[in-house]
């Protein structure tokens, strides 16, 4: 499973990095979103993979080994929301730049 996830992270990263190096703003925005999936999964995976061990205390059992690591999850949760804000901001900047410059090239000129 770790192998699958690692390859998944790699594929998401590669697609994202390829896209942010492209000249069109829309490509960059999709690329950034793909990279943020990869990074979120990467940070999440730092807590190691556990199945059926959600960090919700059940039956008053507070033994840390019974649950998966909650710290990366807390980090990633806010990262997802901030990622959304970033996408929104970038999208609007992209639209404004397109309106001002008349092109959707990342440099504002073809």
């Amino acid at each position: 499973m770790e192998l699958v996830l690692a390859i998944a992270i790699g594929v998401l990263t590669a697609s994202g990095v390829y896209l942010i190096l492209r000249p069109r703003t829309f490509q960059v925005i999709i690329g950034l979103s793909l990279i943020s999936y990869a990074v979120n999964l990467f940070i999440f995976s730092m807590g190691r993979l556990r199945i059926d061990a959600a960090p919700v205390i059940t039956h008053g059992n507070t033994d840390p080994s019974a649950y998966t690591d909650p710290v990366p999850q807390a980090l990633v949760l806010t990262a997802i929301v901030i990622g959304f804000a970033m996408t929104a901001l970038f999208l609007v900047v992209m639209l404004a730049a397109r309106g001002f410059t008349g092109t959707d090239h990342v440099d504002g000129r073809d």
Partner: peptide, 12 residues
């Protein structure tokens, strides 16, 4: 991508 995949795998 390869770099991140290897790093992730090594840690996991």
């Amino acid at each position: 991508g390869l770099g991140l995949a290897v790093t992730a795998y090594l840690v996991m």
